[in-house]
Simulated assay, not measured.
Amino acid sequence: MEPLTLIEIDLELARRAAEADSIVATLLELDKHQGLTLVRNYPPSGVTEARWLPVRDALALMWEDLGRMRAILDSARAVRGTRAKLDDGQRARLTELLRGRPHELSRTPIPLVERSLTGPSEHVLFVGLADTLERMRATFPMIAEFLDAVDKVNSRVMTGLAPLQDQLDRAGAATPRLRSIGDGIAELLSRSATDPLALTTAEIDARLAELADALRRESATLAELAAMKANWPAAVAAARARLDAVQATRDRAARAKAEVERTIVSSPLPVSPNDIGPLRAQLDAIADNPDAAPALLDLGGRIDAATSAAAAAEDLAQGLLDRRGELRGRLAAYQAKAARLGVGEDRDVIAAHRIADGLLARTPCDLAAVTRAVADYQQLIAEKAGRRP
């Protein structure tokens, strides 16, 4: 290799030093990249892990290559010094440092079977500034592309979830649905942190839209919580009134149930649970704490369930009692109809009426038997009158 002139040496040294400084600045900027911060803080998995492993090795090699470049440049600066003139040996050495391959990179033993009798026992790999820089330039785009892709996905998720998380933070985990939305947000955050490259843009947008829709559907709940906090005494009083109403319904249901069991043949009616006392105790425990609005809302849901159960029990028992009255009214109406049609004194009609009336008078009354008897009475009237039922 023809030795460089002093001017060429100084120009080459300045150019390589500027390149090294630029690489340092780029690698330091890369070290602060949000994508790199993410994979360092959250060990990657899945698709992201598979892509990260070669990038991690390439990034480590970049720093090693930078160290080699700086070592070569330091050696060149030491040889160059500040002298105004250089002898041929110094110029040859500087030419080798700046243009050749002066740095030993690795030594690899050669298996005995592959050696010649007088050949070397190992392969020695040397590198220089040019090929080191070329390798770094070829490697950098892969690293930057990976980190940008990771950051792009994570930023998209974080930007989309931020307003949703803010709404949840203000509301608290007040309802099962809100807690479920919170779990959904946490799950998406976890995926974007550990395996962002497995998420597609369409999947992210669809999941964000799903969570946003769910949160919008809970807006009424959030408004109700705010209203509770704003007028806490009234909210507590309303809950007490609802518990009183449930108790009143339970009392009516119990009386109707007792009457059914005394007067009507039926399968066992459900027994009302003894939950009003515990519900009152829970209400008393939070009555002086407006910050317990979520607990009051949850309690309200259980009061709703108790109200529905009490109403159903009352409807069932009262329905059986009302059915007996309905059958009695229908029998009287059919009797009047028989008289109007001129068959009221027919012996068969009288007998059918007597059967139905007798079944109605029994205690307990078999409603199924009465229903059949009234239907038979109606049919008989129609037949006697020469009409279809």
Rank of each mutant, 00 (worst) to 15 (best):
A285H: 10
D131G: 00
P111G: 11
P102E: 09
L30Y: 02
L129K: 00
S266T: 10
R324C: 10
E383T: 08
G81Q: 09
A333I: 06
I7A: 08
T194C: 10
D304C: 12
R388M: 13
A214H: 10
R93D: 15
T5F: 02
L225S: 02
A245P: 00
L197P: 00
T26H: 06
L188D: 07
A223C: 02
R56M: 01
R240E: 11
Q318Y: 08
D74T: 04
L341G: 04
E210S: 10
S266V: 03
E64G: 15
R387L: 13
E203R: 03
K257S: 12
G184N: 07
D148L: 12
L222W: 04
R191N: 02
S266P: 03
D169L: 09
A149N: 05
D166Y: 07
R323I: 02
R101K: 00
L28K: 12
G342Y: 05
F146N: 08
L222E: 09
L197I: 02
S272T: 08
G325P: 05
L4H: 07
I381F: 05
L30I: 09
E29M: 05
A248S: 14
D10S: 10
A226S: 06
L98A: 11
A174Q: 06
R80W: 07
A14L: 05
A332R: 12
M228H: 01
L279Y: 04
T249A: 12
